[in-house]
C-alpha cells in the first residue's frame, strides 16, 4: 500500500535510483495515471521517484527541430506560441485531455510511456515523426516514437531508462496539422477514436508529405500507412479524402469495449480522417501568402 518517496535533483540521480529499485520503482511526473493506477490497486510500487526537481526536463525548444522535455505539461503545449500556427494540431491534441486540473500536471513524457492507445498527444506526435530520447546508465539513445509502444501499457523503454524528451522536425512551408477526436462528452473524455493529420502541399497543390495517425483503434496509437500512400502526390479532392478515410478505417484494428463498439470506431475513423485532411487544406490555404 505505501511506498518510499524519492526526489532526485538530477537526471543522473534519477536513473541511479531507478536502477537500484528495478521493478519496485516507478517514476512520477504528473501522476494523472500513476496515482489512479495505485488507487485502483493495479500498481503497487515500493518506491516512487518524483521527477519534479530534475532540471532540464521541462523545456520547449524550437530551432531546427522542436524538442519537448518529458515534463512539459499539456497546458503548456496548448498555450505555447510555437503551436498556434502550422503545429496547431499539437495544441489541439493537448487541449482536449481532461480538465484544466489534469492538464496542469499531465506531461508529454507520461503520455508517451503510459502507452495508452488513446493518448491524444501521442497521436499528434506520431503524425509529426517524433523521435524519443531515452537516457540510461549506458548513455543516451534515440528511438522513433512509431513502434515505441508495442501493446497497451508496454513500450520499448529499457529498464532503468528515463524518457527525457520527444523531438520532431520543423514543418516545411505550406504545411498544417489537425487533431480531431470523438468521445461521448465534450470534455473529460478518453478518445473513442482520434485522428491526427499532417499535410504538406507542393506548389501544384498536391500532397508532398502526409501523415495520418490514429488513436484508440488499435492496441497502440498507429499510423495509417495505406491511407497516407493513397494520397501521395495527389491533390486533396473531397472524393479522395473520403476514399482515404475508408482506407484508414480498413487498416485500423479497433476493439469493442465499454466506450464504443469496434464498428463505430471504424466508422469514426472513416469520418474523422477526411475531416482532418479537409481542415489541413483549409489551414494551408488560410496560411498561404
Amino acid at each position: 500500500m505505501t511506498f518510499d518517496y524519492h526526489e532526485p535533483t538530477s537526471v543522473r540521480e534519477a536513473i541511479e535510483l531507478s536502477a537500484r529499485f528495478g521493478g519496485d520503482g516507478r517514476f512520477l511526473a504528473g501522476g494523472t495515471d500513476l496515482m489512479v493506477q495505485i488507487h485502483r490497486g493495479r500498481l503497487n510500487p515500493r518506491h516512487v521517484v518524483s521527477l519534479q526537481c530534475v532540471p532540464g526536463l521541462d523545456g520547449i525548444e524550437v530551432d531546427g527541430a522542436v524538442r519537448l522535455g518529458a515534463r512539459v505539461t499539456h497546458r503548456r503545449l496548448e498555450s505555447a506560441e510555437a503551436f498556434q500556427g502550422a503545429l496547431r494540431g499539437l495544441a489541439e491534441g493537448a487541449e482536449v485531455v481532461g480538465g484544466h486540473q489534469v492538464r496542469n500536471v499531465a506531461t508529454v513524457g507520461g503520455n508517451i510511456v503510459n502507452a495508452s492507445p488513446a493518448a491524444d498527444v501521442v497521436v499528434v506526435l506520431l503524425a509529426l515523426d517524433a523521435t524519443l530520447t531515452c537516457l540510461g546508465p549506458a548513455g543516451e539513445r534515440t528511438v522513433a516514437l512509431d513502434g515505441f509502444a508495442t501493446a497497451p501499457g508496454v513500450t520499448g523503454l529499457r529498464p532503468n531508462e528515463l524518457l527525457t524528451r520527444a523531438s520532431f522536425p520543423r514543418l516545411a512551408p505550406r504545411s498544417a496539422t489537425v487533431f480531431l477526436k470523438a468521445g461521448r462528452r465534450r470534455a473529460m473524455e478518453i478518445s473513442i477514436a482520434c485522428v491526427a493529420a499532417r499535410v504538406t502541399l507542393d506548389d501544384l497543390e498536391r500532397c508532398q508529405d502526409v501523415r495520418i495517425a490514429l488513436g484508440a483503434v488499435a492496441p497502440t496509437a498507429i499510423r495509417a500507412r495505406a491511407a497516407e500512400r493513397h494520397l501521395e502526390a495527389r491533390p486533396l479532392t473531397d472524393g479522395l479524402m473520403r476514399e482515404t478515410g475508408r482506407i484508414a478505417a480498413a487498416e485500423c484494428r479497433p476493439i469493442g469495449d465499454v466506450r464504443a463498439s469496434a464498428r463505430y470506431r471504424a466508422l469514426l475513423v472513416a469520418t474523422l480522417v477526411p475531416r482532418a485532411l479537409a481542415r489541413c487544406l483549409e489551414r494551408i490555404k488560410l496560411g498561404a501568402p
Binding site: 485502483r40 480538465g99 462528452r185 465534450r186 470534455a187 473529460m188
Partner: peptide, 26 residues
C-alpha cells in the same frame, strides 16, 4: 451519455472515467 454497463452481472464502468455525467461543456 450515462449508463451503468453490466456484463454477466458485473459493472464494466465502475468509475467516473467511464460513467459519463455531463460537464459544463455538455
Amino acid at each position: 451519455s450515462e449508463e451503468i454497463v453490466y456484463e454477466n452481472g458485473r459493472v464494466l464502468n465502475a468509475n467516473l472515467t467511464d460513467y459519463k455525467m455531463p460537464t459544463a461543456r455538455d
